[in-house]
Write a protein that binds this DNA or RNA. Structure first.
Lengths: 213, 213, 213, 213
DNA sequence: CATGAATGAGTGTTCATTCAT
DNA sequence: TATGAATGAACACTCATTCAT
């Protein structure tokens, strides 16, 4: 016979109600939401727990978001905005070595918990927000195109060696996806080891393949 | 939000109750369950809908499975059993060309809907069945070890060319994972195209890298 | 994730189906039913468990009884028939002492587990079978009248002493009811002690009150 | 088997939702619960019906109680608190006559519907809340000890006559239990008559037995 | 802006009962 | 007679959401 908080009325010291600027509250809620959605998925995550984690009342959530879907969508949108890769800084690389180093570093640095969280949510709950999925898909496609263009230019300039890899360069990024999935499935410790190993081998391989003869 | 047409009394032909052998019914239920679990995840999938999809009553589900968890576990276990990769047939390859062809073909052929389904479920709901996740993890680990052993032998025999790739061969399989994720996230048509492209490039790249000098 | 028997099909060695005379099966079922009803009450008792206890299938119960209510009613009726007090044997008592001894002995001997079971079921579930309750009530009333007639006769014959007790003799039986309730509420051990004490005091009191001056 | 007239759309005035102080609602619910539990027992009583009787939604019950068990326990606890006998006022009796009158009056006045309800629930469902049963048992035991002490004192003071009854005084209270059971089993009218008769005879008997010679 | 009380719709699960064999 | 498969109706309970304050 366990009692819910609501049943035993004197559970906690009854935080005073504090009034915050909307944007602040919104972000607090979204932070809490990310944790819950990520741990349990959209359906299993509950508004109650998100509210409790954010330190506010359930009803207050509906002051800031229209409903659960809205909250989820906003969350995903924000996350996507925040973690957009930054290819502009790679435009001025001079050597294959430099290219590989920057590529590897920025790609694996991009595998933050947040990014993994988005990816996971998109795999898990993507069907729920098809327009976001589409948007993400488009963004990825564009990134791929930009990357390919850069690679093509570097090949043309003779700075990197042409190969099947340079022809369909997304192949060269597959190990990053592999690492992401590893982080989704394995526990943190095991994942970290495997990712490090893949990263090192990945760098070596690219160095070898891209260095001009 | 569709409504069932309970208002029009002759909506469905009121199927007479049909009695089937337990194994048959069980499989019907599991088939329906796969669809639902895969589309919505464990929590959001509902027994009601699974039952309706299987064409039986909700209660009948509980004649064949102890509960939702039992059903899910059984499903995953069956799927895992069914889609175990078959590496034994690769032991007798004679040339790099042959090795690459068999590898690529068997790997990409392995990306059936069922396999994608398992992978997706394990990413999404793995935490729910840690022992199955562990089992899967172990199986994958073993497959990797077997693969690596085979590669090492072929390198030793001079049949394939050593490189960073042959040292950490799971890197060579990353594009398969990439393809799997693509199939999870993109709609079938787009996915098929991308996967085909990756597969071709993948084959070319491996051929180039593994062919002995 | 516990499994029900039905889910793990090879739980028990699969007793052969044996065909028994209807009356035998009926009694087996009723015996099982008494245990279950008594332990859990009508609603909480389940046909499944009764069937399992009787060593037959659920469906077979419906061969012998129309439904749960029928079973319950039959059970209660049988029990009531079996445990009807026997006042005829007291008609020929000659002394107050003898009367008291026979009365006390037969009354407390009547507090068998079965009788307690009936009483409990009638208190608990009497509303479910008002006609049985009425019947029981009537039977008790008659017993009371018989008893009172006997007492009046013995008083008239000068064999026992008149008093407020002999005027409304059911008062003299109240301690038996008290003992019955004790057995319903306390655990067996404690109950036994208390009942014994009450019984002894009861006997002493009646001896004192009924012995002619 | 009555049907709700869901067909005629204006069956009930569709009460607007009313918001009450928690203690008030809790009590409303407990009142409704008492009726249902008492009429049907714990298991057969349904949350739906309790809610309907209390005029609120099923879900609202769970705002005020953790679950059915919690509700039942709270109910029983409250009832027990409310109906604790009051023996202190009997300490200063001066004569046997006064003692008997106060005893009989307070004992039979104590047989309120509430008390009968508790007693019934404890007999029926006591096993479900062993700690409450124990508490009740202890309280009763203590009351018995207090009573016996009082009686012993009055005997020592020569105010009441010693007898087998004064030695084990709970025997003297047996008719009260008998009356309680009568009220549990018979319908209100019949019960009232029988209880009154028992009460009168009980008073007469005690007067006779306890009056000093 | 903030909340606690309230609720409709839904969940997984159980059960007495029926049907086909 | 006997049973295992099947089901409709109910149950306790949860949840996203709304309303009154």
């Amino acid at each position: 016979m366990k009692k819910k908080d609501s049943a035993s009325p004197r559970a906690e010291p009854k935080k005073k109600r504090t009034r915050l600027a909307p944007e602040v509250r919104r972000q607090q809620i979204l932070d809490a939401a990310l944790v819950e959605f990520n741990a349990l998925g959209f359906t299993a995550a509950s508004i109650s727990k998100i509210a409790r984690r954010a330190g506010i009342s359930k009803a207050n959530i509906y002051v800031h978001f229209a409903n659960k879907d809205d909250m989820f969508e906003t969350l995903l949108e924000n996350l996507m905005r925040r973690s957009q890769g930054n290819w502009s800084r790679m435009q001025d690389v001079q050597t294959a070595e430099e290219f590989v180093d920057r590529l590897i570093d920025s790609a694996y640095d991009g595998l933050t918990d947040d990014t993994i969280a988005i990816a996971r949510l998109l795999i898990t709950e993507g069907h729920r927000v098809p327009h976001l999925l589409a948007k993400w898909s488009t963004a990825n496609m564009q990134a791929r195109i930009d990357r390919q263009a850069l690679v093509d230019r570097l090949v043309a300039e003779g700075k990197i060696q042409p190969s099947p890899l340079t022809e369909h360069f997304s192949l060269a990024m597959a190990p990053v996806v592999y690492s992401a999935v590893t982080q989704m499935v394995l526990d943190k410790e095991k994942a970290a080891g495997e990712v490090q190993a893949v990263k090192d081998a990945h760098r070596k391989l690219l160095s070898m393949l891209l260095r001009p003869a």
